[in-house]
């Protein structure tokens, strides 16, 4: 056996564990979703027959899917821009050489260490219509169908802020000091420097974060489940929420098709990311 073949075999052997996990937990379930989408159960859920692609169109244009998608899209609009702006503001504020700045950097990034459940419970205490500290603030009241999604979004923004902050801060710190100083000597004040130099240089970072946050938002479920259980009157039933609701022993097809729809949308967003990143300038000397 030549050296090359042996190296290749060792390489493949090392890939086996992750390949097994990928196939078992990601690829197989995806195939199962298609299979379930192509079959229909009988009333007792004891037998199924092949119905082909016939239901895909109905489900993906149906009330459940489109309404879930509308709510999820709104949720994206509520969480992503606000999250990015807050993350950039915090990171710019914390990106300076001051004594004790590490303390602030640690505080600002601390939400990374909290789970969705923790964030939701915190906001449950803050926003709960009966006991919440901010229950009187109408703008994101959880008891009003028109504003409940904002309350849920708020908890999500807070929870993702640590991640956004850390990544933007890393992006800012990758900008050479001298480039910033050159901008100062070119006569730029802080605002112009930010928009002409800092922002363009961290734009690849922001693009990456935007995609990650969009995907997070499209997958949002636990926040809504804990804070509002999807209510009031379904106003916070995100797409994942609808998928979860529609999955029943006698109807596994509808939920599967909706899940595939969400998968397709996420895939498109990721593709868009790749295309945009391809076009991005390659920095570095």
């Amino acid at each position: 056996m030549s050296r090359r073949t042996r190296d290749a075999l060792v390489g493949y052997a090392l890939l086996v564990p992750s390949a097994v996990i990928f196939v078992w937990f990601f690829f197989y379930p995806l195939v199962r979703l298609f299979v379930m989408g192509l079959h229909q159960q009988n009333r007792t859920g004891t037998a199924e027959r092949y119905v082909g692609w016939s239901r895909f169109g109905d489900v993906l244009t149906g009330e459940q899917f489109t309404e879930g998608l509308r709510i999820s899209a709104t949720y994206v609009l509520y969480t992503v821009p606000l999250g990015l702006v807050l993350g950039v503001l915090l990171a710019v504020a914390a990106n300076r050489r001051l004594k004790g700045i590490k303390v602030f950097q640690t505080i600002f990034s601390s939400t990374i260490a909290s789970s969705v459940a923790v964030a939701s419970v915190v906001f449950f205490v803050l926003l709960n219509p009966q006991i919440g500290y901010f229950s009187s603030v109408k703008f994101f009241s959880l008891s009003d169908p028109d504003t409940a999604l904002r309350g849920v979004a708020l908890s999500s923004v807070w929870q993702n802020l640590g991640l956004t902050f850390v990544i933007v801060l890393a992006g800012l710190q990758a900008i050479p000091d001298e480039v910033d100083e050159a901008a100062t000597l070119d006569g730029y004040g802080p605002v112009r420097r930010f928009f002409r130099v800092t922002l363009p240089l961290i734009s690849p970072t922001l693009m990456f974060l935007a995609v990650v946050l969009v995907i997070f938002a499209l997958q949002a479920f636990a926040q809504a489940d804990i804070l509002t259980q999807g209510g009031p009157v379904g106003a916070t039933e995100t797409l994942v929420f609808k998928i979860f609701r529609s999955q029943q022993p006698i109807d596994q097809g509808t939920g599967s098709i909706m899940a595939l729809g969400l998968f397709g949308i996420t895939l498109l967003v990721s593709l868009a990311q790749f295309l945009l990143l391809e076009r991005r300038v390659h920095y570095g000397n």
Binding site: P176, V179, A182, L185, D186, G187, V281, Y283, N285
Partner: peptide, 18 residues
């Protein structure tokens, strides 16, 4: 610095990469 009317050439040149 921005009000000093001075130009500097840095060792790294510090050009704007974008």
């Amino acid at each position: 610095a921005k009000d000093r009317d001075i130009a500097m050439v840095f060792q790294s040149y510090a050009l704007y990469p974008h």
